[in-house]
Design a protein around this nucleic acid. Structure first.
Lengths: 226, 226
DNA sequence: TCCAACATGTAACCGGTTACATGATTCA
DNA sequence: TGAATCATGTAACCGGTTACATGTTGGA
C-alpha cells in the first residue's frame, strides 16, 4: 500500500491532522488516489507506531481535539527512499474491457451505447482536469509551492493524455463496429459462437509452448514487491 | 465485482471447469483482468447458488474429478444484461503518480530514473501485446470464433494505445525535468517547500466554493453501482 | 429547524492475494 | 528424483469501502 507514502508526502509539506490530509487528498490527488478518513486514521496510527510520524494532541474548547501529525527524520528518509524506487507496473482491472471482450454476445447498438457512455464520462473528466489545472496554479501560488506545482501538473497531464487516447480508441471502435455486417452479430442477441473447450485449451497450451517465454500476459516485468 | 461476469462470459462459449477457466483467463484477458483459482472456485459456487450456472461432476479414474460448469438461461440473460449496462468509470490507484506528485522531494536523477524504468516496462508490455495479437488470431481460427476475435483484438488495441500515450508523456516529462534549473531542486534531496496547512486548507475551501460544482476530483460521473 | 463542517474513530464487509493442503501422473 | 500438470479447495491476510457512532458549532 502506498497510502502510507502519500500521507508521508503531504506531512513533509508540514504538520497536519487526518482531517486536513483528507481535504488535501480530495483536492489534489483524487484523480489517481482516493482515501477515506476511516482508512487514514488507522494508517496514521500505524505510521506513528513505526516511528515515521509523531503525534501531538491540540486541545480545543469548542471543537473536538485535533491530533496533529509531524513527519520524523525516519519518515522523511523512508519517503525519499520509496520515491526513488521504481514502481511496479500497475495491475489494472477494467470492467469495461470485459464488456468489450464479450461484445459479440450483444447487439451492435448495445455495445456501441456502452462505448458512447464511456466517451461521455471521459470528456467530462477531462473538462474537470482542465479546471484542475487552474486550481493547482492558484493553490500553489497561494501557498508558495510553485516548484512543487510543476510535478502536480504532470500528474494531471498524464490523466488527460490517457483519456484522450481512450476517447480516440472508443470512437474508432464504434466506427468499426458500425461498419460490421449485421449478420456478424446474428439475429438473436444471444447468438454467440461456442467452442470445444478441451480443444481450445489444447491450442492454448501449444501456442504457449511455442512462445519465447512469459508468453502473452500483462504482469511480470521486473516485479520487486514494495 | 465482475469476475462473476467474466466467468459467465467464458462459460457462454461452452461448459468448462474452474481450472480451464483459469487457463483461458491467463491467456486472453490477463492484460486487464487477473483471477486466481482460489477466487474462481468460490465464485463458481456462488454463481451456482444463484442459479446462473449448473455443475456436474465428471468422475475420472487417474486424475481428480472434474466439476464441469454450464451456464443456465438465467446466467445468459444476466450476462447480456450486465454487458449492456454502461460501466462505472474505473477508479484508479497509481503509485507511480504519487511518486511524480512528490517528485520535488528527490533529485532530478532519481525521479527521471523512475520514469525511465516505467518506459521500459511499457515497451516490454507493448511487445507482449504484439505477440498477443497473433496468439488471438491463431486461437480464434483454431477454435472457430473469428467473429469474437474482433472484440478480443479491441481490448488489446486499447492497451497498446494507453501504453503509447504513457510512454510519450513520460518521455516529455523526462525532457522537461532535465531542462529544469538545478537550483529548482535545491542542493539537498530533502529540500522541499513547506506550507502553512491552515492557510492551505482555507485556500482550498475558497477555490472549492468558487468552482461550479463537483469541482476537481476524478469520481462522480453518473455512478450507477453494479 | 435542519444540514454542513469540524474531528475522531470502530466494525462489518468485500474483492482479491498468498500460503497451505492433498494426491495422482507424467516427463525431463 | 524432482518438478510440472491436473484438479480441487481452505484460511489467513490485506487494502479499501460503507455504515455506524458521537457531539459541538455556525449558517441557510
Amino acid at each position: 500500500m502506498s497510502l502510507k507514502h502519500g500521507l508521508l508526502g503531504f506531512l513533509n509539506y508540514g504538520p497536519m491532522t487526518g482531517y486536513e490530509l483528507k481535504k488535501l487528498f480530495d483536492t489534489s490527488v483524487a484523480h489517481f488516489w482516493n482515501a477515506e478518513l476511516s482508512q487514514i486514521y488507522p494508517t496514521l496510527k500505524q505510521l506513528e507506531s513505526e516511528g515515521l510520524v509523531e503525534m501531538k494532541v491540540k486541545l480545543q474548547a469548542d471543537r473536538p481535539n485535533r491530533k496533529v501529525y509531524t513527519i520524523t527524520d525516519d519518515g522523511r528518509s523512508e519517503l525519499v527512499d520509496w520515491l526513488s524506487r521504481p514502481a511496479d507496473p500497475d495491475q489494472v482491472r477494467e470492467p469495461l474491457m470485459i464488456k468489450v471482450f464479450f461484445g459479440a454476445c450483444v447487439s451492435k447498438e448495445q455495445i456501441t451505447r456502452v462505448l458512447r457512455h464511456r466517451i461521455e464520462q471521459l470528456l467530462e473528466m477531462n473538462a474537470r482536469y482542465e479546471r484542475g489545472c487552474s486550481v493547482i496554479q492558484s493553490f500553489a501560488a497561494g501557498v508558495g509551492l510553485n516548484r512543487e506545482a510543476f510535478f502536480w501538473q504532470l500528474t494531471i497531464d498524464v490523466g488527460v493524455k490517457h483519456n484522450e487516447a481512450s476517447i480516440r480508441w472508443a470512437e474508432e471502435a464504434i466506427e468499426r463496429i458500425d461498419r460490421l455486417d449485421a449478420s456478424f452479430f446474428g439475429t438473436s442477441p444471444l447468438h454467440v459462437g461456442t467452442m470445444d473447450v478441451r480443444r481450445a485449451v489444447e491450442i492454448l497450451d501449444r501456442l504457449k509452448s511455442e512462445m519465447p517465454e512469459g508468453s502473452f500476459s500483462a504482469q511480470a516485468a521486473g516485479r520487486t514487491k514494495e
